[in-house]
């Protein structure tokens, strides 16, 4: 019978009785209020309201802020005054509609081929590309014969031979792209102290990626009034700080594409950036294909698991357990 009463009703009756008996007085020796009853939540409440808890929380907060200030030198959540200008960060590049931008889009391989030509004829004079081998071009932008012919134009030192000396041999497909300078010191010496970075991963290594490199290549201009550029430096608003050692290199008609595309500055910049994007992510096309597959497979699997879960749980959820009291046969 007791079970027919809900727990809430039980509690209500108890507390009502308690307070009422307090008013009554004759029936209870001590006066207790519902709020002072010793229960688990009340104990927790009293701990939380204690002075020790307040002091501890204050100490933790102050300590955390002090530690942050010690680590980073400034107060958290407060802006700092910098003696710098926004131009030091470089102009934010515009987002360009790259042919490989969409989640389903591959690289434009004709553009990679043109971009390789631009790299070889223009960029390779100063920049290395030492993570790309000749064999990587095969099946991407060149045939095996073309890549082999290009590799053989370059002499590589190999050995030691049977006489113990290093020797020169024409390149093979397994060789990596030749570097313009033998080491970093030679590169700095050849470029007035500035080191032309390796371009293998440059698209991944710069904020803004392809958009930034394209903007940088096409963004050279005369410095605005009031901006002093040192001798030997060039003004480029996209470069952090504005002054870049590399001069503008792409001019209309600098290279002659073998597929007849007009070699404007922006065309060449677009092609070489596409090529460098490929160099940063040679797995790009394959990766997006796997992405399509994974998304399809896992969404179908999710839908099917939901159905099967429902199928398996249906009988369990619909199960009803009822008790029929035994009827008295003698009546």
């Amino acid at each position: 019978m007791l079970s027919r009463l809900s727990a809430g009703a039980f509690k209500k009756a108890a507390s009502a009785g308690a307070s009422r008996s307090a008013v009554n007085g004759a029936r209870s020796a001590s006066v207790r209020f519902a709020s002072t009853q010793a229960s688990g939540s009340a104990a927790l409440e009293s701990v939380l309201n204690s002075r020790a808890a307040l002091a501890t929380a204050t100490a933790v907060s102050v300590g955390t802020i002090a530690w942050y200030t010690h680590l980073y030198g400034n107060l958290p959540f407060l802006g700092e005054a910098h003696a710098s200008h926004l131009s030091d960060e470089g102009l934010h590049p515009q987002a360009y509609p790259w042919s490989h931008k969409g989640v389903l889009d591959t690289f434009d391989h004709a553009s990679i081929r043109r971009g390789y030509q631009v790299y070889r004829e223009v960029c390779a004079a100063c920049h290395s590309l030492d993570r790309i081998a000749w064999r990587n071009l095969v099946g991407v932008s060149h045939t095996a014969d073309e890549a082999r012919a290009m590799a053989e134009e370059v002499e590589y030192s190999d050995g030691p031979g049977s006489d113990g000396e290093m020797f020169q041999r024409p390149g093979k497909l397994a060789d990596y792209m030749p570097a313009p300078y033998p080491n970093e010191e030679a590169a700095r010496a050849g470029n007035a102290g500035a080191y032309p970075p390796d371009l293998s991963l440059i698209i991944k290594a710069r904020h803004g990626g392809a958009d930034y490199v394209f903007s940088l290549l096409t963004g050279y201009q005369d410095p605005p009034a009031g901006v002093e550029i040192r001798e030997g430096m060039n003004y480029n608003p996209y470069f952090p700080g504005g002054a870049i050692s590399m001069a503008r290199v792409l001019f209309d008609g600098l290279v002659e594409y073998d597929d007849g595309t007009p070699a404007t500055t922006s065309q060449m910049a677009k092609d070489v950036v596409t090529f460098l994007s490929w160099a940063s992510e040679p797995e790009h096309d394959e990766r997006k294909k796997y992405g399509i597959k994974a998304v399809i497979i896992f969404s179908v699997l999710t839908a099917l698991s939901l159905y099967v879960k429902r199928f398996k749980w249906g009988p369990i959820k619909n199960r009803k357990i009822s008790y029929n009291p035994p009827a008295d046969k003698t009546h």
Partner: peptide
């Protein structure tokens, strides 16, 4: 097949 059709003319 879908991927090749979507990227027609771009791949090697």
């Amino acid at each position: 097949k879908f991927y090749d059709a979507w990227n027609k003319g771009k791949q090697w």
